[in-house]
């Protein structure tokens, strides 16, 4: 079951195409990375999903239904540009946003109490937003995003501006939400975070779909038959014939094997030559490398 499907979505602003024929399916209950450099069209896609704007053409389905006005209450959205009413009390503010998402007064109050307890901030109710530090405001912003128990959570650069402690706190919450079956879209241009958190990714550039799939598939697809091994003994002189040595240091080698050679064949060859192997690992490309390779390639093709 897909929680979210986009089919051939196009969005044009007066002078450029922000979203150019994007299609993807997002399985329910997963963490989905929406990746791309700045200006790639991530925010435009999110604005369409959150019904802030409408696509020029194409269709969006949430839970199999075409997007309609009942859906915003099932979506929690934390924009990259955070914002709260500065002069409002924290408690009143959360009550307001929760009720706008359709919660009753009593439910809203209960949900806020739950989160206040969770973050041990029970005494914040009467504090004004402007009295809080930036990190504290981010916590409130996060609570306001998830207060109505959305089925789909959209986080746009959720860790920007957070110190490591608060970033970890939010990260734990993201995993917790996932455990409860919430589907999460995680939009960012920071690849190392994606590798850690996401299962599925969609990479876009200049409004176009560049790459999509599970993180594992994408990495397999882009692996280069590269291995690293640590050893004791002396390597035979014809060792270079098996592939291209990327890096060699005493007792350790990184090699990119010839296409027709499997890792087992190579390992056999080393053993036959009485090399003592201490470790043998495949080196998978990082998403960052794949990202740069793909986006760089597209950019070159365009110019």
């Amino acid at each position: 079951m897909n929680i979210l499907s986009l089919k051939n979505v196009v969005k044009t602003y007066q002078d450029h195409i922000a979203v150019n024929d994007i299609s993807f399916d997002m399985p329910e209950g997963c963490i989905f990375g929406l990746l791309g450099p700045n200006g790639a069209g991530k925010s435009s896609i999110i604005r369409i999903i959150t019904t802030i704007t409408q696509a020029d053409s194409g269709a969006v389905f949430l839970n199999g239904e075409p997007l309609n006005s009942s859906h915003p209450s099932q979506i929690g959205y934390m924009p990259e540009e955070r914002g709260l009413y500065k002069k409002m009390g924290v408690g009143d503010h959360l009550m307001y946003l929760a009720q706008l998402k359709g919660l009753s007064k009593a439910d809203a109050k209960q949900a806020i109490d739950h989160w206040f307890e969770k973050f041990s901030i029970q005494d914040w109710w009467d504090k004004k937003v402007e009295e809080l530090s930036k990190g504290m405001q981010q916590k409130i912003q996060f609570i306001s995003t998830v207060i109505h128990k959305p089925k789909l959570l959209i986080l746009d650069e959720p860790f920007s501006g957070l110190d490591p402690i608060n970033a970890n706190l939010i990260k734990d919450e993201i995993y917790e939400m996932k455990k409860q079956g919430v589907s999460i879209i995680f939009s960012t241009h920071r690849m190392e975070q994606v590798e850690e958190i996401c299962e599925h990714i969609l990479l876009i550039n200049q409004g176009k779909n560049v790459l999509q799939g599970t993180v594992k598939d994408v990495k397999d697809q882009y692996k280069e038959n590269k291995f690293e091994f640590k050893y004791e003994g002396t390597l035979p002189s014809d060792f270079n014939d098996h592939g291209n040595v990327v890096k060699e240091s005493p007792g350790s080698v990184i090699i990119q094997l010839r296409e027709e050679e499997s890792s087992n064949d190579f390992l056999n060859y080393l053993l036959r030559n009485n090399i003592r192997i201490q470790s043998f690992n495949e080196i998978l490309p990082t998403l960052n490398e794949i990202f740069i390779r793909k986006v760089g390639a597209v950019n070159i093709a365009e110019s």
């Binding site: 802030i52 915003p72 959205y77 934390m78 540009e81 914002g83 009413y85 946003l97 706008l100």
Partner: peptide, 9 residues
């Protein structure tokens, strides 16, 4: 920037 949060509701 609160407006973006508001407009999503």
């Amino acid at each position: 920037r609160i407006v973006e949060v508001m407009i999503s509701s």
